[in-house]
Design a binder for these strands. Sequence first.
DNA 1: TTGAAAGCGCTAACAC
DNA 2: GTGTTAGCGCTTTCAA
Lengths: 331, 331
Amino acid sequence: MTKPTLVDVGKEAGVSAITVSRALRSPEKVSDSLRAKVDAAVRKLGYVPNQSASTLASSETNSIVVMIPSISNNVFTDVLRGIEDALKHTRLTLQIGNTGYDPIEEERVLRSFLNPAPKGVILAGIEQTNETRQMLANVGVPVVQIMDLSDAPIDQIVGFSHEDAAFAAANHLIDKGYCNIGFLGAQMDPRSQKRLAGFRKALQNAGMYDERAVVVTNRPSDVNIGAILFGKLTTQYPECDAVFCNNDDLALGVLFECQRRGIRVPTELGICGFNDLGVTSQCVPTISTVRTPLYDMGAKAGKILVDGGAGAKDRQVDLGFSLEIRNSSLR
Amino acid sequence: MTKPTLVDVGKEAGVSAITVSRALRSPEKVSDSLRAKVDAAVRKLGYVPNQSASTLASSETNSIVVMIPSISNNVFTDVLRGIEDALKHTRLTLQIGNTGYDPIEEERVLRSFLNPAPKGVILAGIEQTNETRQMLANVGVPVVQIMDLSDAPIDQIVGFSHEDAAFAAANHLIDKGYCNIGFLGAQMDPRSQKRLAGFRKALQNAGMYDERAVVVTNRPSDVNIGAILFGKLTTQYPECDAVFCNNDDLALGVLFECQRRGIRVPTELGICGFNDLGVTSQCVPTISTVRTPLYDMGAKAGKILVDGGAGAKDRQVDLGFSLEIRNSSLR
DNA sequence: TTGAAAGCGCTAACAC
DNA sequence: GTGTTAGCGCTTTCAA
């Protein structure tokens, strides 16, 4: 029982292979009776088109490539949901590549996905290697960068300002009367560095920046790391009365550590997270955070590519952010 | 600047296309000097093999297909990490399909991934349609089912017993002296139904099963749903003194709801979760849970397929589970 | 160790 | 509306 080809289906339906191809690809260009016969033959033989042959002949793929720093990071699963939803009810298929936060690895994996050329490419961040940019230019495929902003995107970019977001969050803490505010950061990728920059700017503006207030690690963000970093912070900066965290995981870890140590939130310590990953709205007390447009960035990027790369009028789309002020920062 | 082909590389290196192909695919079958020349030409032209052409000519893909019920569920991201790690340093590429917990959708998506045939297929659960089984049999591709056990796997299966795991968890609560134990379940897929069955068996054995003790929903599991389900449970079963949750998300939601209502854990209410998703070991109090071999199932399934589908001696591999007894169930 | 010929299954371009 | 011809870029088979 060898796999049926277009020729087999054609024989069964009493027509030529190319007619079957047309009946399947553009049913409107074919007579009704013929379409019915072809459909019957397809079903009878269990015909499934060979993607490789189709791609080779037409030099057209139906795939969208997404390069993601990490699949186990909830931040990116939200983004992926957005992309998936945008591709739903479309012939487009999603090809996910994992970069491990490494531009060189991104280049390597992306290269293998670029021949034949996909319908579009979604890239996280703006730190691509020159090689990557060159490759992309040669292939001439629509590219959408996400998660950040840039005046000089490869092609198009949809994101938000990490610096502004962190700046706003830090100012919120300052406004609430906290005056020894720490920064906790894990997975210090370039976007996290921008958050740190925004934080620093806000504190400097207020004349209350202190070197000791910053504790970061390059390890992946999780709840446990939050507690550990907070431990370090309180050691080197005991007067600390609030923390801004890089990511909600960390913020939750800080809250738990406070519960363990009997530190009252928000009176003794204010907490603000980042990304609004869900659990911060449920814990006790609820944790203030910065809502970032994770799902929307994915959905918008997907839509742009579904529309052939011409979805946005401007090359840069700023989806913004919003402060979700909850109980952990209201003293 | 059109994309270079094998012929172009051959011309550049002064050899034929087929020789280039060989130099790239099996370098040991080619003289050193030639290999050097070819490598130089490849680099100079920026040659990248055309996957479609290669696949079409050899009728061999280098992809592993994984059908996952949902990418936004942390349970599956852990599994995916395992698979990815197994494929690392391998020519194999991961193709992820999303089933949305629907066997019909699984069939539809899988069908489109099956021609040309991938090197292997990983399927979650054992609820495939007959059509799906038929397709897979026709294609003759190695299949590994994961997340569950079965005496009649399609091909091979690696998982653990959900019923036994829930049975053990429920018995643990019974042993600790809780006697009105509720079951909270979201995303009631077939594996969750098995957990419910295991729970029920334990309570019935102990002569303390009560209809009102079971509160479930088909909505996806998250922290908020945990609180909601717990609310329902306490309404319809006020004497409830412990809950076993389908998933750690729910357990965390229950803990938060207890904090809100001033219910003391574990004295007034015992809590046990499922899957050991990380945060349960960090919260206050820590939450007892069932550690399931999420990463390991992915890694093992991946390894089996990397080894050509013959990795396991037995068709069924039971990776087991373990009780992580923490503070939420020790009164 | 290297090359020539044939063909994988499909579609573009052109006929009828 | 339907068929014919050619060829996508590669690998298989066979020959040298």
